[in-house]
Write a protein that binds this DNA or RNA. Structure first.
Length: 199
DNA sequence: TAAAGGATTTTCT
DNA sequence: GAAAATCCTTTAC
């Protein structure tokens, strides 16, 4: 299947819609000549300053600057002292929002993914936001603020995923400090991952 | 199979 | 100084 990077305009829409339509697209990362890719099967929308679970709830800081930038760029952040997570920035500059890529189905470069993931089972290569970054070699120093249409990190158009293959889940309780932390997680029902949401 | 706790560092209060 | 958009191992049932 020939596919092209999604156009910048794809990301310049409501975050929830972008999260839904990223399902089925291909995330592709090339590091030092090694290309790895996977089909996006789980995403999560972070909708702006009013979304208390979104990093932008803290306002405009050095860390969140990318979120305030134009759509179609990668926001890669470090969490829990050891994991990277990758987002696609959405809407327009000045409206800080993004879609977290939560899980992939490995497509190309599986051998490299196995090496980076230290021989874990294939089903555990990319079934989590931190895991997929490790498998594909995505890190903040390399990829934060990079255009998702660049050579190193791209998101390619894929076959649309029908509603019948998608589950929307609400996740509760990211933090005790958040009063009403409702999150929408959209995932392909064909993919069984470790998520804890309720359908 | 589920629940609990540790790892480890950046970020903001 | 505490919490964090997580992952992994250990322990319990």
């Amino acid at each position: 299947m020939t596919s092209r990077p999604l156009p910048a305009g794809f990301y310049a829409r409501e975050t929830e819609l972008v999260a839904r339509e990223l399902l089925g697209a291909t995330l592709e990362c090339t590091v030092r000549g090694t290309r790895c890719s996977g089909r996006i099967v789980e995403t999560e929308a972070y909708t702006g300053e009013e979304d208390l679970a979104c990093h932008a709830a803290a306002g405009r800081t050095a860390r969140t600057e990318i979120l305030y930038g134009p759509p179609g760029y990668a926001y890669v952040y470090f969490i829990y002292g050891m994991h990277w997570c990758v987002n696609a920035v959405t809407r327009r500059a000045g409206l800080p929002s993004a879609v977290l890529i939560r899980a992939l189905e490995p497509l190309d470069g599986i051998e490299a993914m196995r090496r980076r993931r230290h021989g874990r089972r294939d089903s555990e290569l990319t079934n989590g936001p931190g895991k997929l970054c490790e498998a594909l070699g995505i890190t903040g120093p390399r990829h934060n603020g990079v255009s998702l249409r660049s050579a190193g990190l791209r998101i390619l158009a894929g076959e649309p995923v029908p509603d019948s293959d998608v589950a929307v889940t609400r996740r509760i309780g990211i933090s005790k400090a958040i009063e009403d932390p409702l999150r929408w997680i959209i995932r392909s029902s064909a993919h069984v991952s470790g998520g804890k949401g309720q359908v």
